[in-house]
Structures are given as structure tokens and as C-alpha cells.
């Protein structure tokens, strides 16, 4: 019984490691989705093709849609980041072509910085957390068995 419980604890440590990794992974994906969406809008702005709402329906990922709907409580972002991104998304497309291109370019730079940071943290902490989770789990198992 004792061995079984320790095995469960070790497994839980591994799962926690995966959860931490998923947090960073989701954060990284969210920023890259945002960049993809804004690039698509920029393309539409240049060619004056489709409306932002139509692009949003097709290109907007679930997490991006949550930010616009103000339902981002479970997202891996701080309140300040959500506020900032929401403001960008709610105002995109509302100007004339020249100004809109500049505005999107600025927004892309800002989000690119977030993405770089998220990517770095994923590479460092995300991957490490899985390894650490398993190592801690195994260590607990060995020490207490």
C-alpha cells in the first residue's frame, strides 16, 4: 500500500510538471495566434478585402476570442496583458488604410516582444518543469519507499 501511494505521489509530481509546461505552451501559442491574426488583418487592410469581424471568425483562435469576449480569466495572461491585448483587438481595423497599417505594425512589434519572452520561458521553464516534476517524484519515491 505504501509503495502504491508513493507511486501515486511521484506520478502527481510528473503531472504538475506537465501542467506547468502546458501553461507556458498555451501562453506561447496565444501570442503566436495573435500575431497570425494581426498579420492576416494587415493583409486584408492592404488589399481591402474582408471585414475584420469575418477574419476574426475564421482566423481568431479560441483563446483570442475569449480575450475579446472578456472571458479571459482562465488564460495564462496577467490582467494588464489581457487589457492591453483586448484594446488592440477592439480597435483594429477602425481607421483608414495608411493609419491602420502603421497601427497594426506597432501592435505586431509589441506582441512579438511578448511572444519572444513567452517562447524563451517555455524553452527554459516549460521543458525543465516536466523533467523536474518527474525527478522530484522519483526522488520522493526512492527516499520514502
Amino acid at each position: 500500500m505504501r509503495v502504491f501511494l508513493l507511486a501515486v505521489v511521484a506520478l502527481c509530481c510528473g503531472v504538475i510538471g506537465f501542467k506547468v509546461r502546458d501553461y507556458y505552451k498555451r501562453r506561447k501559442k496565444l501570442f503566436s495566434d495573435l500575431i497570425k491574426f494581426l498579420k492576416k488583418v494587415k493583409e486584408e487592410v492592404c488589399l481591402k478585402k474582408n471585414y475584420v469581424r469575418e477574419v476574426f471568425d475564421v482566423e481568431g483562435s479560441e483563446d483570442v476570442k475569449k480575450i475579446v469576449a472578456n472571458e479571459g480569466a482562465d488564460l495564462p495572461l496577467s490582467k494588464e496583458e489581457i487589457r492591453e491585448i483586448r484594446e488592440i483587438l477592439l480597435n483594429v481595423g477602425k481607421s483608414v488604410v495608411d493609419y491602420e497599417e502603421e497601427k497594426i505594425e506597432d501592435s505586431l512589434l509589441k506582441i512579438k516582444r511578448y511572444e519572444d519572452d513567452a517562447s524563451k520561458k517555455y524553452d527554459q521553464k516549460g521543458v525543465l518543469s516536466v523533467k523536474m516534476g518527474f525527478l522530484v517524484g522519483i526522488a520522493i519515491f526512492i527516499l520514502l519507499v
Partner: peptide, 10 residues
């Protein structure tokens, strides 16, 4: 304008 002035500004 569906929040897209650029598309209808002409």
C-alpha cells in the same frame, strides 16, 4: 462598417 473602416472608406 463592421468595425472595418479601411474596407469601406472609399
Amino acid at each position: 462598417i463592421r468595425g472595418s473602416l479601411y474596407a469601406v472608406n472609399d
